[in-house]
Design a protein around this nucleic acid. Structure first.
Lengths: 344, 344
DNA sequence: GCGGACCCTTGCAACGATGCACACTAAGGT
DNA sequence: ACCTTAGTGTGCATCGTTGCAAGGGTCCGC
């Protein structure tokens, strides 16, 4: 038995299809008793509007796409949760896709219409998109990018100040008296956060008047635990291992820490570790992980709101509003992996 | 400028709308040159089919809904990733919603049509659904449930054998020579996995001929790190603390382990810990976490395939096919938190 | 008593695509 | 010569909903 339609309800309530539609949409000019009669018919039949039809008519689907490299990376999972929450509050549904860290797939998802699914807008946390690729996209649904880019394409961004945050993280290590400070997470061909964090890292060295030892900059392909672990192996194998490591993600840090501990280095006594992202794992690791904590809720909120603003203003905007760069706050959260265990 | 439609393409190629549609859908009987001409027009205009319209006509959206309690719980994030992957392979898109552990919200999502969004089927990892609630649902899109239930409602399930897995986990602890074995994760009002795992836990005691000390069964509201931490605090405060703990999730285990370590108990020497889920965190924790590893890929694959089978057979099935219970494999993975560090 | 304002309800067309049935041509079979 | 079959293209109706504009009714003021 097919789902009841407006027509079925209309028949039962003895009114026109249009009137039922008016009731469903809370149109003002419907007499009280008509409304009641229609509502009764709706309830009896268990009518629910067919959104496919409604969307077709209105041209909007109230769906947002979220594209992340990997959903099971805690930072993205936490962010996805917050974004879904924000979107729901605003009456939107989120459709998630992940690129598996595959740049080709990322390009496809963004330039094609995500395999043809309809959505009104897109939030993208990019790996390696170039300016041109985004330009190509802008003809269709609006996009909000998470994370700063080095270029200033005509696309809205939401991000923390990565350079400043990275500088602060590194300075924190200098403040602890460390001098041989390594960085795990450098990516030379990156145009995104990796590059920005590397810049901040170097700035801190400049400020401290210390020369960067290029051997201590470890490049990685991914920001996973295993890459952090491998990087730390390399660092500990050096004739002069570092006394502190700034990892560009908490996962890298957790992998690095695991290796340090299993090679009987004390964290933070032998080597202090600071991460980036403030994922929950870090708060329960042993030792707990010092980190840069971006305000994820603020990022989610800004991204969703900015996107919805674009979506809902799009029809009227003959000249599109200027693109915006939204800066989200962050905090340095000091925990045991740099401070050590504080015994009361 | 609105997106081009079939009509625009038809006009440009000098054929009928219908013919363009035939080209788009790879209909066999289209002459080569017509096809080429139409294709050219499609390319020039950048035509993409409007899926809203297509879906309305065909009545299917090729979208699956995935409902999980919390997306940022690693187990669910890992599962979601695999499910998205499987669905994509089969040509479906996944729409994720989470209930925030709220039972009322879970009920709403499942019995209502997930806030009215269209999808062809639903995969649900339930917290506390009852049989009646699911019955109420079955009139609409098909559902596949993740995790066994104690009742055998007319809904397809995919799960591992939780009782057997829990028994095996507990037996592993007995095999290590432990006798005061605690369990973290009991939920008395649960009809789901918590109950099943408790049963398996008790079975292992029966097999070992050991009396269960009810004080060592710790009830929790959620399966999070913080609940595991709180539970371990309670256990360590007992006059006779346990020498092993079976945690019903890896997150509980990680929280518990954190507390044990920070209270200077050695894991596993003073207290062995085993978890459940095999999330990646456990593989990088210190010590690494022994756990029950459900075959998540198999779960995702079975769930998606079963759901799609239902969806695609639904129209022809006057008598629906009998509901199935799919059992996914699992493994006991022994790591440092029970075995200790193996020095080569 | 009539124009106008205000309520309430409705029919028709349209959103963009596909299902269906049919028209037409050309070739092949009897 | 006629019928069938395969190959190719088309028109119309339809999916379920909403935009639009107009139709009627009531009530008011003058």
């Amino acid at each position: 038995m097919p789902a009841p339609t407006l027509k079925d309800v209309a028949l039962r309530a003895g009114v026109s299809v249009r009137t039922v539609s008016n009731v469903v949409n809370d149109y003002v000019y419907v007499a009280e008793d008509t409304r009641a009669r229609v509502q009764a018919a709706i309830d009896e039949l268990g009518y629910r509007p067919n959104l496919l039809a409604r969307n077709l008519k209105t041209g909007r689907s109230r769906m947002l796409a979220l594209v992340v490299p990997e959903l099971d990376v805690p930072y993205f999972a936490e962010l996805a949760r917050l974004i879904i929450h924000e979107a729901r509050t605003a009456g939107y549904t989120v459709l998630i896709d992940h690129t598996d860290g595959d740049e080709r797939r990322e390009r496809e998802l963004v330039t094609e219409d995500a395999r043809g699914v309809n959505f009104d807008g897109m939030i993208v946390s990019p790996l390696s998109l170039t300016e041109e690729q985004l330009e190509a996209r802008r003809t269709t649904a609006p996009v909000v990018l998470l994370g700063e880019r080095l270029f200033a394409a005509g696309v809205d961004h939401v991000a923390i100040d990565n350079v400043r945050a990275a500088r602060e993280a590194t300075t924190h290590l200098f403040d602890l008296g460390r001098r041989r400070i390594a960085a795990i997470g450098v990516q030379h061909d990156s145009t995104g956060t990796a590059k920005l964090r590397t810049i901040g890292f170097r700035e801190a060295f400049a400020e401290a008047g210390v020369q960067v030892d290029e051997d201590l900059l470890i490049e990685v392909t991914h920001y996973h635990r295993e890459n952090g672990a491998a990087a730390m192996e390399r660092l500990l194998d050096l004739p002069q291992p570092p006394d502190a490591v700034f990892c560009f993600s908490d996962l890298l840090a957790l992998g690095a820490q695991r290796v340090a501990l299993s090679r009987n280095r004390s964290v933070p006594d032998d080597v202090a570790i600071i991460g980036f992202d403030d994922i929950e794992d870090g708060r329960y690791a042993t030792p707990t992980l010092t980190t840069i904590a971006p305000d994820k809720a603020a990022i989610a909120r800004s991204a969703v709101h900015q996107l919805i603003t674009r979506i809902e203003s799009a029809p009227t905007a003959t000249h599109p509003a200027p693109t915006v760069q939204i800066e989200a706050p962050y905090r340095l959260v000091v925990r045991e992996s740099t401070r050590g265990v504080v015994t009361p």
